[in-house]
Computed example of a mutant assay.
Amino acid sequence: MREFSEDYLRRTRSGMWDDSREALEPLALGSRDRILDVGCGTGELSRVLAAECPGEVIGCDADRDLLAIARDHVPVVAGDALELPFPDDAFDLVVCQALLINLPDPAAAVAEFARVSTDLVAAIEPDNGAVAVDSSVDAEESLERRARRAYLDGVDTDVTLGADAKTAFTDAGLDVCETRRYDHDRTIEPPYDEHALTVARRKASGAGLADDRETMLDGELTGPEYDDLRSAWREMGRDVIDQMTDRDYRRTETVPFYVTVGRVPDA
Results as ranks from 00 to 15, higher is better:
75 P>G: 12
80 D>Q: 11
27 L>R: 00
68 A>Y: 01
81 A>L: 03
90 A>E: 13
29 L>W: 09
100 L>W: 02
109 A>P: 07
88 D>A: 12
101 I>P: 09
17 W>M: 05
8 Y>D: 11
44 E>S: 15
127 D>S: 10
69 I>E: 14
6 E>N: 05
62 A>D: 12
112 E>M: 04
5 S>N: 06
12 T>K: 06
96 C>G: 15
71 R>T: 13
2 R>P: 12
61 D>S: 12
39 G>P: 10
128 N>T: 01
32 R>M: 03
113 F>K: 01
85 P>A: 02
4 F>T: 04
22 E>G: 12
90 A>L: 08
22 E>C: 09
16 M>A: 10
52 E>C: 13
138 D>C: 06
96 C>H: 14
120 L>I: 02
72 D>R: 15
14 S>D: 12
42 T>R: 02
53 C>A: 15
57 V>D: 07
61 D>P: 07
10 R>P: 00
56 E>W: 00
135 S>G: 09
84 L>W: 14
43 G>P: 11
86 F>W: 14
46 S>L: 03
38 V>F: 07
27 L>A: 00
36 L>N: 08
112 E>K: 03
95 V>M: 07
127 D>G: 09
134 D>L: 13
114 A>I: 05
50 A>F: 02
128 N>Y: 11
88 D>P: 03
91 F>N: 07
81 A>N: 01
92 D>S: 08
98 A>L: 02
70 A>V: 11
27 L>G: 00
106 P>M: 04
30 G>F: 03
126 P>L: 03
81 A>Q: 01
144 E>T: 13
28 A>R: 14
43 G>I: 04
53 C>V: 11
113 F>A: 06
10 R>N: 13
19 D>Y: 02
115 R>D: 03
27 L>C: 01
92 D>M: 05
62 A>K: 13
47 R>Q: 10
106 P>N: 02
30 G>A: 11
23 A>M: 05
48 V>I: 14
92 D>P: 04
58 I>F: 10
24 L>I: 05
131 V>P: 06
34 R>D: 01
6 E>G: 01
120 L>A: 06
60 C>V: 12
63 D>G: 09
36 L>Y: 08
29 L>S: 09
39 G>N: 07
141 E>A: 15
1 M>A: 07
94 V>K: 05
56 E>H: 04
135 S>A: 14
44 E>I: 13
139 A>K: 09
30 G>D: 15
24 L>R: 00
103 L>M: 14
24 L>A: 02
116 V>A: 00
127 D>P: 08
10 R>H: 14
74 V>A: 10
137 V>K: 03
89 D>G: 14
73 H>G: 02
37 D>Q: 07
133 V>Y: 09
15 G>T: 07
48 V>F: 07
133 V>M: 12
49 L>P: 01
108 A>F: 04
11 R>P: 00
38 V>R: 02
15 G>F: 03
34 R>H: 10
133 V>N: 06
9 L>E: 00
20 S>F: 02
77 V>D: 12
2 R>W: 09
120 L>M: 05
50 A>W: 07
130 A>K: 06
88 D>G: 03
73 H>W: 09
132 A>Y: 03
141 E>M: 10
80 D>H: 14
85 P>D: 11
22 E>R: 15
